[in-house]
Computed example of a mutant assay.
Amino acid sequence: MKNGTVKISCALAALALVVTAGLSGCGANSDDANSATQQSSVSGQNNEAGKKSVVKTPDLSKISWNVDPAAEGNTPRLALSYTNGLDVDLLEFKVSYSLKNEVTDDQLQSLFGGDDWTTPEDVRDSGLSCDAIKYVAVGESGMEYCTVGAFKTSVTNQMDLWNVAQIDAEYYDSSNKTFQKIQYFPSNKRTVKEGPATAAFKWVAGKHASMIPKPDVSVVKNMNDSDDSLYFHAYSADPNMMQNYVSQCEQMGWKVESQTEYTTAFAVKDGYKLTVQQSDYMSVSLNKEE
């Protein structure tokens, strides 16, 4: 499959995807001639015919996004905000940046200095990105703070030193029960697939899986069942995902020990401690009590 050539359209830069002093962002527009025929086969089975479904590669121009000043409590931040205009649900949307060639160490020290870690070399090595890892259904919006390494950006002038290097997205293909990663590169104005499609629900029937309920969600990732622990991440558009899973755990005999808005800890059962957390996705961990 050949991916359609894409081009960037933005009010302040006709053919380059660049974050300007106003911090406005734009998506990647597919050529009309290509977007109508742009298709890719992904691995997976059609439930009725037992054949692979053929789906169009999502048109990234339908994701409108911006990087704007925001606040985390009383702390100023810069945040990526976006709306999913695709016809598939998103699991991740990430904008990565590269330093402009003319940026000097003095500029980096002036805008990022002040902390022990933020030397100009550290900033160059860490890079800047805005990475939203969360389930965003069709038509819904997401937001995530922009960071340099593990530290969040805070003032608009910091963004003036960077150009957009690439855009990454991961989407859920409900027809084939898979997820697929795609990338857009401004340097060659193309959208490409990153590897093959992957099964969306990966449940490892290992040593500890029978101790906890299997979640009623579309996507389970990063599951690991080791000698003394188990963990996984679950994604769903259902805002009650964590509450529903906690109820499932209680039905299996787990008793809630403590609970907050985002975390539920269960009392030790059969020598194991179970914790369920939810922010942008649900994280479940089962650990042997020492």
Score class of each variant (00 low, 15 high):
residue 49 A to L: 15
residue 27 G to F: 03
residue 58 P to S: 00
residue 52 K to E: 12
residue 57 T to C: 06
residue 127 G to V: 07
residue 128 L to G: 08
residue 47 N to H: 12
residue 117 W to L: 09
residue 22 G to L: 14
residue 132 A to G: 11
residue 116 D to E: 15
residue 109 Q to H: 05
residue 95 V to D: 08
residue 106 D to W: 04
residue 90 L to H: 02
residue 121 E to M: 07
residue 129 S to H: 12
residue 22 G to A: 13
residue 74 N to D: 05
residue 94 K to S: 07
residue 108 L to H: 00
residue 73 G to D: 09
residue 128 L to S: 02
residue 130 C to F: 14
residue 108 L to D: 03
residue 109 Q to A: 03
residue 70 A to D: 15
residue 61 S to Q: 09
residue 52 K to V: 08
residue 55 V to K: 08
residue 46 N to I: 07
residue 75 T to K: 14
residue 109 Q to N: 03
residue 35 S to C: 07
residue 40 S to P: 01
residue 35 S to M: 11
residue 100 K to P: 11
residue 120 P to L: 12
residue 73 G to L: 03
residue 92 E to G: 07
residue 85 G to K: 07
residue 90 L to I: 02
residue 115 D to P: 02
residue 40 S to A: 13
residue 33 A to D: 10
residue 77 R to G: 04
residue 105 D to L: 08
residue 91 L to M: 06
residue 79 A to M: 07
residue 76 P to E: 06
residue 39 Q to T: 07
residue 129 S to I: 03
residue 81 S to G: 11
residue 75 T to M: 12
residue 30 S to I: 01
residue 108 L to P: 00
residue 70 A to W: 08
residue 31 D to T: 08
residue 59 D to C: 10
residue 131 D to C: 09
residue 67 V to I: 14
residue 60 L to P: 04
residue 69 P to V: 06
residue 127 G to L: 13
residue 52 K to I: 02
residue 61 S to M: 08
residue 52 K to G: 09
residue 60 L to D: 00
residue 36 A to F: 10
residue 115 D to L: 14
residue 80 L to C: 02
residue 122 D to R: 13
residue 31 D to C: 05
residue 36 A to P: 01
residue 90 L to R: 08
residue 80 L to F: 00
residue 21 A to M: 08
residue 51 K to R: 10
residue 66 N to Y: 05
residue 83 T to G: 00
residue 59 D to L: 04
residue 115 D to K: 15
residue 71 A to M: 15
residue 83 T to W: 04
residue 43 S to G: 12
residue 98 S to L: 04
residue 95 V to Y: 04
residue 49 A to Q: 14
residue 57 T to L: 12
residue 114 G to K: 15
residue 58 P to V: 04
residue 89 D to V: 00
residue 44 G to P: 02
residue 55 V to W: 11
residue 74 N to P: 02
residue 35 S to T: 01
residue 112 F to E: 02
residue 121 E to F: 01
residue 41 S to C: 15
residue 89 D to Q: 03
residue 118 T to Q: 14
residue 93 F to S: 02
residue 108 L to K: 04
residue 109 Q to I: 01
residue 51 K to G: 06
residue 39 Q to Y: 11
residue 20 T to C: 10
